[in-house]
């Protein structure tokens, strides 16, 4: 009797697992002229929201397609593309020479699709009276030369510096455009994503950080840099000093008519531009 109950339990477990699997709305992988129904997207956390919104939009129109999006950093996106484990690499920086070389050696031809423009607002807590800084001041804060808000016209409070992890394109952009090869002080906190930067800044009155334009909302205050405040207009006109394009890379230009092609050119369609704008980035055609 006892053994039989035990067996029932096991049978039930197996059966329910099976039922679950069957019940799931299965998408049968079918090869057709439109290419694979599976599109794997990997890479930047900055481009992530755009990629996710595109993926959902596209899957809404084509229910047979499964697009997976991971947000693991620009470098990881490049790596995955080179290794052939993803179809689209989101990147918030351009590919590096070494990466190109490695890709070509592996027979992968990276093609860049610029999907949007992004500024890199320097953000502080809204209670911080400081309104604007110069690029030099930001650099001095991050190198540790300026350690107190008093030195840039704020109250006598120690500055808490927040930076992105070194695996992000956002970090590289910041390092290139602001730090100019100087090193970030070791007591800087590093966090893994744009959202985390905003969260840390929003909960820490003495904090300073930087994040993509689409991640900045009312809970933090974007500083003017060299007298220019980051917004759509100043980013697209290039007046805001820390701006950059956002990329999607594919292996070669995708064959016309394939799903992959449709996906990576979504940003050129009016819907795609609207999505980009609504998320908070600047559409490339916005001139």
């Amino acid at each position: 009797m006892k053994r039989s109950t035990l067996r029932t339990v096991i049978l039930l477990a197996v059966a329910s697992a099976f039922a679950l699997a069957v019940q799931t709305r299965g998408v049968h992988a079918q090869e057709s002229t439109a290419g694979s129904t599976k599109i794997v997207v990997d890479g930047s956390t900055t481009v992530g929201p755009i990629a996710k919104a595109f993926a959902e939009h596209y899957m809404g129109l084509h229910p047979e397609v499964n697009i997976t999006v991971s947000e693991s950093g620009s470098g990881n996106g490049a790596k995955s593309l080179i290794n052939g484990v993803c179809d689209v690499a989101d990147m918030s920086r351009f590919m590096k020479e070494r990466e190109f070389k490695a890709a070509v050696e592996k027979g992968v031809m990276p093609v860049a699709h610029v999907v949007a423009m992004d500024g890199l607002p320097i953000i502080v807590h809204p209670s911080n009276p400081v309104k604007a800084l110069t690029v030099q001041q930001v650099r001095d804060i991050y190198t540790g030369k300026i350690t107190n808000w008093r030195e840039v016209g704020g109250p006598n409070v120690r500055i808490v510096k927040i930076s992105r992890d070194t695996n992000s394109g956002t970090y590289e952009t910041f390092a290139k455009l602001i730090m100019k090869k100087e090193k970030i002080a070791p007591d800087t906190e590093h966090v893994g994503s744009n959202g985390a930067v905003r969260q840390r800044v929003q909960s820490t009155p003495a904090a300073i950080g930087y994040a993509g334009l689409g991640f900045v909302d009312r809970t933090v205050k974007a500083l003017g840099i060299n007298g220019v405040y980051p917004d759509r207009e100043s980013v697209r006109s290039g007046r805001y000093p820390i701006a950059r394009p956002l990329f999607m890379f594919t292996d070669g230009y995708p064959a016309l008519g394939t799903r992959l092609h449709a996906f990576v050119t979504l940003h050129l369609s009016p819907k795609g531009q609207e999505i980009i704008e609504d998320i908070g980035f600047v559409p490339v055609t916005d001139y």
């Binding site: 299965g26 049968h28 997976t68 999006v69």
Partner: peptide
């Protein structure tokens, strides 16, 4: 599973797809 299986967005998979596709 960070490097081997997990993604942040994807559809629910069918049993056959588990062999080749990542999942949230």
């Amino acid at each position: 599973i960070i490097f081997t299986a997990a993604v942040s967005l994807g559809r629910p998979l069918s049993l056959r797809q588990t062999l080749s596709q990542p999942t949230p």
